[in-house]
Amino acid sequence: MQTEAYMNLFLGLAFAPLLGGIINRIKAAFAGRTGQPLLQQYYDMYKNIRKGAVYSRTTSWLFRAGPIVGLASVLIALALVPVNGSTAPLAFTGDLILFAYALGLMRFFTVLAALDTGSSFEGMGASREVFFSALAEPALLLGLATVARRAGTLSLSELLAATSVTSPELVLVLAALGIVFLCENARIPFDDPNTHLELTMIHEVMVLDHSGPDFAFIQYGAALKVWVLGSVIVGLILPVAGGKFLLLNSAALLGCMFMLAVIVGIIESTMARLRLLRVPQLLVAAGALSLFAFILSMR
C-alpha cells in the first residue's frame, strides 16, 4: 500500500470538517463577531455520534439507508481524487465519469431519504436539489472534458498532475467549476446553510429529520463533498512538483484548501443569496463557460 496514493484520502478524512470551521470564522470576522471554534464541526459530529436517534413513523428503511449510501458514495469519489502528482487508489482511465456519477448516487439517496419523510419542506428541498444538480452536471463534465483535452488523458489523477493555470480556457473552466462547487455544496449564492427558515433552504432542509449517528454521517458526508470538489479545483490550479515531493504537494494542497475555504467565507460574507429563479441562469452560464472553454481548447 502506498501512502502516496492514499494521502488525499487521509487528508480529506481528517481535515474536511475543518473547512466549515474556517468558513464560519471568516464570516464571523466580517460580521465583527468572534465566531464559533474552528473545530466546531468535529464537536457537532462527536455529539451526534453519542446520541440515540429518533425516526419518523412515516419513514421506511430507505430513510435509514440515505445517509449511509450518501457517505459511502462520497468516499468513493474521494478515493478517485489524488494529491497532485500521485495516483489515487481507485484511479483508472475514465474515472472522471465515475467521479461525477458517484456524487450523483449520493444525491439520489439523499433526495429519496428526504422524500421518505413525507414532509413538504423536505420535498421542496429535494425538488430544488435535483433541479439544480441536473443543470450543474453538464457544466462539471464539460469542464473536466476541456481539461482532459489539454492534458490528453481521461484519468483524474493524470489530469490533475498535467495541468496548471497557463491558458485562458483553464481560467474559464475554473470559473465554471467554482460555480458548480458552490452549487453542489449548497453555499451562497445558491443556498444559505445558516438560514433560519425551512422554506428557503435546499440542502439543510432535506436532512431536517435525521438525528444521532445518521445526522453525523450526513454532516461528515457534506464536509467531504466540499473537500472532494475543492481538491479537484485546487489540483487544477497547483503546479506539480513531481512524485518525490509528496509532503510538499500535500502541504500545498492543504494550504490551498484552507485558502479556498477563506474565499468561500468571503463570498458568503459579501454576497446575498440569489433569488431561486436566478439560480438556473447562473448554472446555465457555468455550462456555457465550460463549453466556451472547450471551444477555445480546440484552437
Partner: peptide, 25 residues
C-alpha cells in the same frame, strides 16, 4: 457528453420523483 450529462441529471430527477412519490411518504 453534454447531452448525456444533462439527460443523466434529469433522469435522476425523474426517477427520484417516480419512486419517491409512489413508494415513499
Amino acid at each position: 457528453v453534454a447531452g448525456l450529462a444533462l439527460i443523466g441529471g434529469l433522469a435522476a430527477a425523474c426517477f427520484t420523483k417516480a419512486f419517491g412519490i409512489v413508494f415513499l411518504g
